[in-house]
Each structure stands twice: as C-alpha cells, then as structure tokens.
Design a protein around this nucleic acid. Structure first.
Lengths: 332, 332
DNA sequence: TTGTACGCGTTATCAA
DNA sequence: TTGATAACGCGTACAA
C-alpha cells in the first residue's frame, strides 16, 4: 500500500548514472548541468517517485530561504489576512514558509516562537504577538523578528497607526452627535496601546470626556464589561471596542437588553475581520488592511535577511474606517 | 545585536566537558545521564543560549514524531476548530506539528501536500482536502493521510455523517411547516456529497420534492444562486445551504430583498463556524464538531504511525443541529 | 558515558 | 562547460 522505503537523491543518481551532486543541481535549477542531462535526471526522479527532502536541504543549505510565521490565533480572521499577504510575497520568491500557532491566552506564544527559532528559520514574522517586549527582543537576538502591528524597540516592525484608527472612530461617532462615547480597552501592554491613547486624544480634541472600561480579548468578557457600562449611570450612547471580537461582545450585551445597534447604541470595532462583514451584523469597524501588513512584513523580512546588520527597519500603514450598520445618530 | 554564529550541541558539550551524545540525552530527557550532570548541562546550554536544532533532529531521529497538518483555508473558522483538536492531542504527546495551507480554489492544495511530504512528516492530517480521490491516494502512497470529513477509498478518515446532518436540517424545517425547501449545493465531487443525498432522502421521506440549486463555496456566488431561487417562480420558503459561507450568501440575498430571515425565509447553514454565532446573524446550522474531528484525526494518525500496515482506519462522528434565529415557522 | 556511523542533501574544490 | 569527489550541517542511536 505504501512505499516501504524513502527514495533518496542517491537512488536517482545511481539510476541515472550520475553523481548525487548533479542530481541536486538539476533539481534546484542551478547552473552546472546540461539541459539534456537535467531533463533525464528529472524524468528518472519522477519515475522513481522522488521528491527532495526539505529537512535535509534546510540542514545542508546556505540559509536565507526560510521564513517563519508566528500566528497568534487561527480563529482570528485578521491574522489570516496577514498570512495571505505574507504568502503572496514569500511563495513567488521560492522561499519556504514555516508556521507556528500561539494560543489565545498568550501562554503558548513563547513556545511557538521557540519552535520557529529551532526550526532554522532565517527570520520570523510575528502576527499578533502578545509577549512582553523583552521576550520578543530576546528571541530576536537569535532570529530576527519582524513584528506586525506592534512597535517594539529595536525590533523590525510593520506599524499600523492605531492612534489614527481610533481617532477616525471617535470622529465618526462625534460627528453623529454622540457625546458619551466609551472605550472598551485592550489588555495593557499588548502593543495596541495607541488605540486607547488615540481615543483619549480624539475625545479631548472634540471636547468630550474619555471614559475607558478595561476589558479583554474574549468576547464573553467584553459582553460583561459592556453590560456594566450599559446598566450603569449615564450609559454611553456609543461604545468603541478595541477589536472586533470585543465589539461582538458589546453587541451581545446590547442584544440582551433589547437595544438595537446603530439606533439605541452605536458600536465600532477594530480590525475589519470577516465576522464584522457578516450579514445582519454589519459592524462599523476600522480596517487594519491585514494583507497589506503581511506583504510589507514579508518584504521587511527579506530585507533583514539580506542585510543582517542594518538599522531597525520599519514601515507604517494607515488604517481606514469602514462605516456599516452598527453606528447611527445619537439618540436624543 | 544578534548572535553571529549559531550555538550548537558541540559547543555545549565542549563547555561542559562531556560528549555530544550526553548533551543530546540530557536535552531529550532520555535515560542515561545522572540528574546532576543533566542539570549542569542544561544550565550551560542556557547560559550559551543554546536550543536544539529541530531540523537536524528530524533528519537524524527515528521518525514517528512529526505530524503534518494540511489546512485548506485559514479564513474558515471550522478548520481552526479542527486544528485545535489536532493540537490538543499532538502537543501533549510531545510530537511536533508541521502546517501547510492550501488555497480556497484548491489549486494550491497539491503543492501544500507536497510540502508536507517533503518535510519528513510521518503522517498527514488533511483538513478540507479538495483534491480528487486519486490525488490524495497518490500522496498517501508516500505518507499516510488521515482525511477529515472526507471519505476516500483506502485512505484513513474521520468521517462525519453528512447525511444525518442534512436530515436533521430538513426535518427541522419540515417540522416548522416548510414545504418548499431548497438545497444550495456544494461543488460536485468535493467529498461532502452526503449533504445533498441526505437532503434528497429526507425530503422524499417527508413527502416533499427536492429542489437542488448548484452553487459554490463562495459567498458571493451563493448569493447570486439564492437570488435566482427567491426571484423565481414558486420561491422556496426555506433554503438549506451546504455550508455556512454559502448560507451567508443566502442571507445577503434575503437582505437585499427585504426578507427577514426566520420570518420571511428560513435559512440553515452547515458547520457552526464562528461567523454563524455572530450577534445579529444567529444562523441556524449543523454543528460539525470540528475540535472533536481534529482530536479523532490525531488519534488515528498516531495509530497509523504505530501500525503502518493496518487495514484502513476510520472513525465516525455525528453532527448535531443548532437552532438559532434564522429559522422559523413557514409563512402562511 | 563515549565514540562513531548514520540521515540526506548542499556546496566548495577539482578534473576532464 | 559538464561532471565527480568529498567535506559539511547538527543531531540521534547503538555498540563499546
């Protein structure tokens, strides 16, 4: 049923009557073999069911051809967008991609990064890193890291302007006449602090009083925290959540209270995840432009590999507000 | 800024005044080293910033410790559920996981599987495989494959009872008084044919005439196909879509026409993806129990590795209907 | 505990 | 140019 033995390059070489080195050259499309011989070698390899062993190749090779991608959570659609962007750059360059997935609570992140480091990747693109700055910096001493949407001193990064995104959200809501606009905050120190500070700055600029409720990434927790706001004194007429997941929690809480989003209470998320586009939800949100971030990160990664000693590399991306159905005029 | 040279096991051995073999033993927690020496070796390794190279280990090791996971599409939440299940089994067993991601149109699937094969994985768990049976069988001649939610002759599989899921959906709708229940079909030959046949059987059993509209995985296409149904003669009062993505397309079409889901038209999806749980959407759907499928697949994978010549291994899982807000009594 | 033969390609270095 | 030879990468496993 299954091949008992693995077919190796040696097998192909013997069958073709050439050296192993020549087979290697042929398979890598490298210079040093005549077209005719190359074709013959590949044909024989095909017939034998041979495929070069990537593990051996990675061990023997010169390096610089493997990109590691850390993804915080496969359930978050935004990360998938970023991954698509990374792939769009890495695959055409014929480099290989190694993935490692963290855990939602961040506890598995260090292990996942360690896996990448030990997998001989030449550079790591970190998507949704939740580790403290120092932990990321520690990893980057062994393997260069390009952080996506997170600004860590001395670590290459594709930075997204969280302040601008938050400002756009607040200005949108203020323009609709909302005055009691609350912010459902992300965990402190997660690198998205700009969303909170941008919110606060925009509120003050609009002559409004910031009102921040701490919360978490978990939708259920966000629902609880939003409920506290909505049931408290002087409930906000609009809630800006630090990301879409949390915004869904807010919508859950609103729904429980019979409040119609966009009418009784306005809700803005952050990320433009696919769930925010769900029919019936139509969440107004800030688009992170994930694929673009991913492409930029992959480009920075390539640059870092070719110039290991370059100064810190960064690129900046600007989010844009997407108005959908969960925001509307402030109730009078 | 970064370590210029990679620290190897040899470096640690020299520093500790022992052999490389002993360092290897110490790091693998294997028998053959005294506790004191082991601690000393690990301490020195720590100080030197050493981490065992997994690539070299995989090349040298005996095998049977690496599981490959093919995932069709990172944007589909159900696959993430399955992945979680796989991981829940693989990680505690201290095996390593290698991932490869396909493409939505299925064109990249062969390449992704090939990547896994060449990565020396001992077994592949295939999630969302769209390749033809023969292509999967071809891969499985080199590396055993465990297919998730797909039934391919001679390939190990965790099978989900699509017929039962479809039947539950139809019976639910028929019980609500619907008589014109249409099925928005998946592409033929994708392995989920049971949803269509289960639908047809359940319809006939209920004394109703099956009505199948062909469609695709794409939400936009599903919207077009659903629109044709809704605008046509004798429009269905209920539409059962082959998966959640397509069901969202149906909801889009309904929304465009001012039809309220659950009131004017009932909609049932399949998968119980996270989007189906979105507030305001609340899609009635068939729960695939992704994490359970993933766990079962990982268990089968382990069994296959330990018994390479065993007969075909299969396990069956039963989906369950989850009634939410998009289904309601048939309009009179 | 140690020596040492692998595992499977890649990449100089060298010869024709 | 076309090709061969041999060292190398970094651990693992087994005999000594």
């Amino acid at each position: 049923m299954r091949d008992v033995k693995r077919v190796t390059m040696e097998d192909v070489a013997r069958e073709a009557g050439v050296s192993r080195a020549l087979v290697s050259i042929a398979y890598r499309d490298a210079a040093g073999v005549s077209a005719a011989t190359r074709a013959r070698i590949l044909a024989i390899g095909e017939r034998l069911g041979y495929a070069p062993d990537q593990v051996a190749a990675r061990l023997a090779g010169v390096g610089g051809r493997t990109v590691g991608v850390f993804i915080q959570d496969l359930h978050n659609d935004v990360f998938a967008d970023v991954f698509d962007g990374v792939r769009a750059v890495v695959e055409p360059a014929r480099k290989s991609l190694v993935m490692a997935v963290g855990t939602l609570d961040g506890r598995g992140d260090a292990a996942a990064l360690d896996t990448l480091r030990r997998s001989r990747v030449d550079v790591i693109v970190g998507v949704g890193l939740q580790l403290p700055d120092v932990a990321v910096q520690a990893v980057s001493r062994h393997v260069p890291v390009v952080a996506v949407a997170r600004d860590i001193p001395s670590v290459d990064a594709v930075i997204t302007d969280n302040e601008a995104g938050a400002r756009a959200a607040v200005e949108h809501l203020a323009g609709l006449g909302h005055r009691r606009i609350a912010f459902l905050a992300n965990p402190p120190g997660d690198g998205y602090g700009g969303r909170g500070s941008g919110y606060a700055a925009a509120m003050r600029a609009a002559g409004l009083a910031p009102r921040v409720a701490s919360s978490s990434y978990l939708r259920a927790q966000a629902a609880i925290d939003a409920a506290a706001l909505l049931d408290g004194p002087e409930p906000p007429t609009a809630i800006f959540a630090h990301n879409d997941q949390a915004a869904f929690g807010v919508l859950d809480a609103a729904h429980d209270r019979g409040l119609v989003p966009g009418v009784d209470v306005s809700v803005v998320g952050y990320d433009n995840s696919s769930m925010s586009r769900a029919p019936g939800t139509a969440l107004t949100t800030v688009d992170l432009h994930g694929a673009e971030l991913g492409r930029a990160a992959a480009e920075l990664a390539a640059e870092r590999v070719s110039r290991p000693d370059a100064e810190r590399l960064t690129r900046t991306s600007a989010p844009t507000l997407i108005v959908r159905g969960t925001t509307g005029p402030a109730p009078s």
